[in-house]
Computed example of a mutant assay.
Amino acid sequence: MILTNEVQASQQATQFDLAAYLAERQAQVEAALDRSLQVIYPERIYEAMRYSLMAGGKRLRPILCLATCELSGGTPEMATPTACALEMIHTMSLIHDDLPAMDNDDYRRGKLTNHKVYGEDIAILAGDGLLAYAFEHVAIETKNVDPERILKVVAVLGRAVGAAGLVGGQVVDLECEGKCDVSLETLNFIHNHKTAALLEASVTSGAILAGASDSELQRLSRYAQHIGLAFQIVDDILDITATQEELGKTAGKDLQAQKATYPSIWGLEQSREQARNLVSAAKAELMDFGEAAKPLMAIADYITARKH
Rank of each mutant, 00 (worst) to 15 (best):
V138W: 12
A139C: 14
I140P: 08
I140K: 10
E141P: 04
T142W: 02
V145Q: 14
R149C: 06
I150P: 01
I150V: 15
L151N: 14
V153A: 08
V153N: 04
V154T: 10
V154L: 09
V154K: 05
G158W: 02
R159E: 09
A160N: 10
V161N: 06
G165E: 02
G168K: 03
Q170D: 15
V172C: 10
E177A: 09
E177Q: 09
G178V: 13
G178H: 11
K179E: 00
C180N: 15
C180E: 12
D181L: 09
V182R: 03
L184R: 09
E185I: 09
E185G: 12
T186A: 07
L187V: 03
H191K: 01
N192V: 01
H193L: 12
A196P: 01
A197H: 02
L198H: 12
L199N: 07
E200I: 04
S205F: 00
S205I: 00
G206F: 05
I208T: 00
L209S: 13
G211S: 13
S213T: 13
D214L: 07
S215G: 09
E216V: 14
L217K: 12
Q218V: 13
L220E: 05
S221Y: 01
A224L: 08
A224W: 01
I227L: 12
I227H: 10
L229N: 03
F231T: 02
V234L: 07
D235W: 06
D235E: 07
